[in-house]
Design a protein around this nucleic acid. Structure first.
Lengths: 232, 232
DNA sequence: CCGAGGGCTTGATAAACATCAAGAGGACGA
DNA sequence: TCGTCCTCTTGATGTTTATCAAGCCCTCGG
């Protein structure tokens, strides 16, 4: 692993507080690998052999049942995924595939489990990380249960607007097909939802969106920190 | 706290492995309280002051947004709830209310946080508990995203059938109004969903349900351990 | 320059689900 | 005993969302 990659990983809240020794052990056993776009990394139902860390590119978590498919989440750099399955030594509940070319760090599951038994600071960091994961899924669940498709889109747009500096103009970070599946809707309905938001000052131009009536949009969206904010 | 209550709590996976000392400290600070039915215990958005343990009765976790309401889960004895918020010292993401008369153990949040910093076995138990919580919500999310209302009902019935001994006959543990909100549907649609299942050998008689074509029902329901099983 | 394919949009149609209204039946207290 | 309340069910209707089909536009390779 390149030194810069290692420093970035070391800087994550999950690894920041663990001992030098324990971190070195973990990194020794791990390896970095590049994957092409659209490659299946994990199939749900299989054991979790590695804790993954996304260094570059984006990974989609999804799930299947009875011929249907649903996107469960997107993982951006620099974040870990399938931590819970690794810790429990259980099968994965979700599948994962690369959206684009990705650079990933793979840490063998057994080493992660050994590390948290040996390093107390690490196990405390895991507790916070797992609590965050849990709360993230609860928020996603609330988003889906309480809001219509249009409302989910409106809040997602406001979220991007905040993240991208609040200039009244954003660029969608994904193509609309992927955005649709993140919002649990079909591409057709995403298109219609954008039309529904037109009277609220949402102007679409390819991946570029401008807002001419932010207050109106917020009145519709009614953003809520306990659904929309990462850090709550 | 009565001795028998204390023994039951001590026997939970979350508390089983912690030291005598640490458990005593926790219990000293805690207190048992009885609550009437339909009482609000927690409002989402408020700080998590206590870790709750349900000793008797059932508690509903729910959430509100923009005038709408959704049931997020039911807590049965003997189980804890709002662990994640307590550990993070964060606001609750869900509200909680008693369904019936309840006996609860309330452990002050600060004591829980102190305990996991002091007792390593406890922090390991917390990790497993949080991983379980996480995976439970992921399963609930999959259930909602991938299945129709009728399919969710069919799987819930099969689940009860297994839990209640597989005799071809079950008794619903909740009234149908609550069952409906657990299945994320209206009472009207639950009633219609039961009718849809009639051709699959599901006979309803108040809270008592008999199955005359389990194979047919399973063909429709397509139960999946990674959605329906508690222990996966 | 053309043609193929993919992303995106739009319209028509159908399925799933919620809402509103009404009524049957049972529990309970006056 | 009666009336009231509540649960549950059923029908009619409207909303939301998915599906199917078609077409536009852009890119890319020949």
């Amino acid at each position: 692993m390149r030194t810069t990659d290692m420093e970035v990983v070391r800087g994550l809240p999950l690894f920041r507080s663990m001992s030098e020794q324990a971190f070195d052990d973990l990194v020794q056993a791990a390896y970095v690998q590049n994957f092409p776009a659209q490659l299946d990394l994990i199939h749900e139902g299989e054991p979790a052999d590695f804790l993954y860390v996304v260094l570059e590119g984006r990974v989609e978590l999804y799930t299947n049942w009875n011929g249907r498919s649903a996107t469960m989440g997107m993982v951006s750099p620099v974040t870990t995924f399938i931590l819970a399955a690794v810790l429990k030594d259980a099968v994965c509940l979700m599948s994962a595939r690369t959206c684009e070319r990705c650079k990933l760090l793979l840490i063998p599951a057994a080493n992660v489990r050994a590390a948290f038994h040996r390093d107390e600071a690490f196990s405390h960091a895991i507790i916070i990380e797992l609590a965050d994961c849990y709360r993230t899924v609860v928020k996603a669940h609330k988003n889906l249960k309480l809001r219509s498709g249009v409302e989910r889109l409106a809040n997602k747009l406001l979220h991007y607007h905040t993240v991208q500096g609040g200039t009244g103009r954003i660029v969608l970070p994904y193509d609309k097909k992927l955005l649709a599946s993140m919002l649990a809707m079909t591409p057709e309905n995403l298109s219609r939802a954008f039309n529904t938001l037109k009277p609220y000052g949402v102007e679409v131009n390819g991946a570029e969106i401008t807002f001419t009536d932010l207050k109106g949009l917020e009145t519709l969206a009614k953003p809520n920190p306990r659904i929309d904010d990462r850090q709550v």
